[in-house]
Design a protein around this nucleic acid. Sequence first.
DNA 1: CAGCTATGCGCC
DNA 2: AAAGGGCGCATAGCTG
Length: 763
Amino acid sequence: MALFDIPTTRTTREDDAALLKKMNKKVKAPSVVRGGNDISTKISTIKAMVETHLGKFRDEYIIIQDEETLHSYIDASIKTGVLSVDTETTGLDPLQDDLVGVCIYTEGEKAAYIPVGHKSYITGQLSKNQLSLETVGKEFSRIVNGVKIIMFNAAFDMRFIKNHLGVELICDWDCYLASRLLNENEPSKGLKALHKKYILRGEEDAFKFDDLFKGMNFAFVPVNTAYLYAAHDAIITYELYKYQLPFLSPDNVECKTRGLTDVAWVFHNIEMPCVKVVADMEDTGVAFDLYYAAQLKEKYSVLIDEKQKEVYKLIDMYRDEIEKYCIKTTNNKLDDPINIDSPTQLAILLYDIIGVKSVDKKSPRGTGEDILKKIDLPVCNAILEYRAYKKLMSTYIDKLPECVNKKDGRIHCKFNQYGADTGRFSSQDPNLQNIPSHNKDIRKMFVASPGYVLMSADYSQQEPKAMTMMCGDPKMIDAYKHGKDLYAEIAALSFNTTYENCLEFRPDGTTNPEGKNRRSQAKSILLGVLYGRGVPSIAEQLGTTTNKAQAIKDSVFKGFPAIEQFEQDSLQMAEDLGYVTTLWGRKRRLPDMQLPDYEFTWKDGVAPDDDPLNFDDEEEEMAEVPDELIHRYLKKLRSTWGSKKIDIFQEANAEGVWIVDNTKKKADAQRQCVNARIQGSAADMSKLAMIKIGNDPRLKELGFRMLIPVHDEIIAECPKENAKEASERFSQLMSEAPGEKFTIPINCDVEITEQWYGERVEV
DNA sequence: CAGCTATGCGCC
DNA sequence: AAAGGGCGCATAGCTG
């Protein structure tokens, strides 16, 4: 159900403002819960649970309800110089939800909870004995300089504190980011889970917020209960910090001996400075054109309808076969009509009813894009077109307008600055890093603020350039230094021809198909190495045979031995150390690289000739499979592949030997070795650029602000009158970001528009 | 009903 | 014999 009606016409931006106001009104739910019976039961339960599990801390934590106590607590934190901070809120949106309380802890004091937004669930009124936001803000402003601030997921708390207390408290140690740098494979992602694992060593059970308060407004939890839970968070954040501290302190022996010096550098010089930049981007958001979105919705619903009709018309050609099938198989999963959004039903239609032969061995009943393209039936092609429209509609055209913040009409997504294990950002709610770019319509929903222009700057060939620097090949470096096209240069030197013969266009402007072909072959090989892509797959992309692709790859490796060397070095590094590193020293741990290809154990942990009644073999010492047997099987396995391997596993199984096959895991890890170094280095570089840009005083004066990082690209906006100077500075800072690590030129084109991907604007 | 996985597809 | 790195999200279909 729509919360409001999208207008079909628009005259001015003021209409948008009115529209938002209208939305606001309808959205406002009664803030006072009638009766409150449910809620009071829930609160009683919470009270009891908190008392049982956290009651023991009742005297160890305090509630701060007067200014003097807060003042002296802040004094104490100024003395210790370190303060952990955690916020309690009514929700996850720092712009639309409220601050309920702040917890702080400094060594030598009891953990303290400062309630500011607790309310009566009956009257909806603010509870008594709470400090005002102003007072807390005033006290917090005393620690913006000189006190080291510890948080977990700092951008979140920093935003709530900035937006509700009016203080820019900048975090110095984000335990989440520290944890990601220390082990990006760590399965425990949350504060409680990490604390339980590393501080309590798994001894105690920790409450997560949702365990206790799911479906509950934290503002309604009585202060006397809330403080036990909340203050606990400030303590465990601090304890986690103390645990992490030595590992990420460059002078500490723990840091040095564990090879974390560079990782610590990345933490202090890339990740932590990036937090404020991220918090600012999330607060800024990006302007959105609701009217245009409504127009797109009309346009695409028509297209979807037409395509859907076409699909069903084509399916109807098979109606006799469908009927036959339905009679034959009474218990099939087909809806009437067939749901073409269901891969299950579509597979039945294609493979069982129409009788299409599988085109992909890996997924014989697949209905993905590649497979449907290969099948190349009119139905399949129509379905693909239908799916393309449908995807745009559901994921973008329908979804994005719902994400518009009712207060400011902008979309504020959440960036996870260590979202990918390689160090890349990710974005969610909504994901602004996968807005369609091929399609010319969708991105235009994103617009500049009134009076502003959008600026997008992207690194050209960021990853190939990172690869060039990391493998240090002089010919590649030279190509970039002389402003040549790298792929053409690689093609020229690998295929023993001239550079000009490897370009798509001749100097006179006519096209050169052979040149284009050579260039794209070189490109496929280089990017193939970068992605760990196999030769047959490259062959498929180039439309040639595996043998020919292999020959092309050999030529490129011969012409550029540094590329092959880099690949070998990266594999070797991971095998020896268990991790690879980026240009700036971030690590990507790939423990699977150190696995043996196969592992052998006795089935059930017992050798077949063991006497089950003999208990003299103390302490379940796992009997080992004799080397001789292992060698016999290894020899067999290494000269066999594919489905025949299964026969060998079964043969071993019959003998009581259990074989674990790690070869798939290892192959996966091998592909990641090169890619993680390149992708990670590129991510480091992009973050350095964001920090430079975010802290540039001149850009700030010009009213420039970053909006969205898209891996090798930054979208920003700036008042139109300052656009010229800002764009030049923007581009320059991007180019300078990698510093002396890059000895090749980096140029960044800045596009200035009013809509994302719209027409260029002259400034 | 929520929560999970599988499949499919948007981006770099 | 096969053979593509890194994300988040929508939908279907199953489970508790």
